[in-house]
């Protein structure tokens, strides 16, 4: 599996504690890059600016990526543009939210 895909799969273990849906299925992960060996860059958003879980989710993503044996450095960048919309959720995410 390509490293970027592996990182994405790993991020499925990080959950938004309010919605109880992982950050990948929630559509919070905009991009994953590996600019140099053992370094990951994750561009992410949150469902709303001023989300009280702002710091927790961002650091959760960082801990998760750093927990991988292939990665030594993680750069987590938070962006509000383009803004998150429900369309960014995966089918799995939407299904979970409807049942939640």
């Amino acid at each position: 599996m390509e490293l970027k895909e592996k990182i994405r799969e790993n991020l499925k273990t990080v959950y938004d504690p309010e919605l109880n849906i992982n950050v990948v299925d929630l559509g919070l992960i905009y991009d994953i890059e590996v600019p140099e060996p053992r370094t990951a860059k994750v561009i992410m958003t949150l469902t709303t600016p001023g989300c009280p879980l702002h710091d927790s989710i961002a650091s959760g993503i960082k801990y998760c990526v750093l927990g991988m044996e292939e990665i030594d450095h993680a750069d987590i960048q938070l962006t509000w543009e383009p803004a998150w919309t429900p369309d960014r959720m995966t089918e799995e995410g939407k299904k979970q939210l409807q049942g939640f």
């Binding site: 990080v14 504690p17 309010e18 927790s56 959760g60 993503i61 801990y63 998760c64 927990g67």
Partner: peptide
């Protein structure tokens, strides 16, 4: 939750707010 689990999220399974 923030007090107890914000440093644990991403490292281990943490409870949801619910």
């Amino acid at each position: 939750w923030t007090h107890k689990y914000s440093k644990e999220i991403g490292k281990q399974k943490v409870p949801s707010l619910k």
